[in-house]
């Protein structure tokens, strides 16, 4: 893929023959992946295929068994400016052990930029307020998060990641288990971020709701990266290699004017494509 010279000089992340896992047992092996600024990458695959392992490996949350990971041109072992990595974990609910407002949760995303003892200044508060605004929750800043809907809580987590002004957003299943109204808003939020050229790596099994967003599709299965290409190439590959009615299903979503509303149930077309892995884990 050719990119404009201004952005081609730096890669956001680069994996070379990377294997990730726990202890000595790799869950994902031999992964090669280069993400450039401005790309919106879908990481697809059935549950247990290794896509979360890939994502956590990039974030340094599990062990790099072999190979190399480079973040913004720096080897991950020497990379300490982790505030540049925006992480949106998969949480069906935010921690309900103690009460906290949306603003308090989002403010915790600002901390990586403040050092050990730094306090929030006026600028930091503005950035937190803007992050809430971007995800459409400016009017809920003072609301206790456990009273928000699942989709709104997901957007709080996206705002938290945005608060550190990261150079890449890494999201784990942002649309899974979210009701229809929220999924629509969520897709709009992600599209807004994409239109601002925010680099995103989105782990999902629901390409339907977010189809317009992606510039690239990576498929992980059985602990390997099995496919890496444009959404068009992905559709073609699906059409050639798989059963016809699945392909039809994809196009049905594509043609649907409000395709994000097609994903009411937290399962996507890919689950159907991949057989019945969806409920296995």
């Amino acid at each position: 893929m050719r990119l404009a010279p201004t952005v081609a000089t730096e890669t956001v992340l680069s994996l070379r023959a990377a294997s990730f896992g726990y202890g000595d047992r790799p869950v994902l092996a031999d992964a090669d992946l280069v993400v450039h600024p401005g790309e919106v990458v879908a990481v697809l695959g059935p549950n247990g295929a290794g896509k979360s392992t890939l994502m956590k490996g990039i974030l340094g949350l599990n062990e790099l068994v072999s190979g190399s990971v480079t973040l913004f041109g720096i080897p991950s072992t020497e990379f300490h400016d982790r505030a540049r990595m925006g992480y949106v974990p998969q949480r069906h609910t935010l921690s309900a052990t103690v009460r906290a407002t949306a603003e308090e949760i989002v403010a915790s995303g600002r901390l990586p930029r403040l050092g050990w003892l730094g306090r929030m200044r006026a600028t930091d508060r503005q950035i937190v307020a803007r992050a809430l605004d971007v995800v459409g929750l400016a009017d809920r800043a003072a609301t206790e998060v456990s009273t928000l809907s699942g989709g709104q809580q997901r957007r709080v987590l996206i705002a938290r990641a945005l608060a550190s002004q990261p150079d890449v957003l890494i999201m784990d299943e942002p649309t899974a288990g979210v009701d229809a109204a929220s999924q629509h808003v969520l897709a709009a939020v992600l599209e807004r971020l994409a239109s601002r050229a925010v680099t995103m790596v989105i782990v999902t099994h629901e390409i339907g709701a977010l189809k317009r967003l992606f510039t690239r599709v990576v498929v992980v299965d059985s602990g390997r990266i099995q496919f890496d290409g444009t959404p068009q190439q992905y559709s073609t590959a699906q059409g050639g290699a798989h059963r016809d009615h699945d392909d039809h299903d994809m196009h049905h979503h594509d043609d649907d004017e409000l395709d994000s509303e097609g994903g009411v149930v937290p399962r996507g077309p890919l689950d159907q494509l991949r057989g019945h892995h969806g409920w296995s884990a």
Partner: peptide
């Protein structure tokens, strides 16, 4: 608060 709220996230952002 951040660490107690979401330890994995806190680790990921350094």
């Amino acid at each position: 608060f951040a660490v107690a709220n979401d330890e994995e996230y806190a680790r990921a952002v350094g």
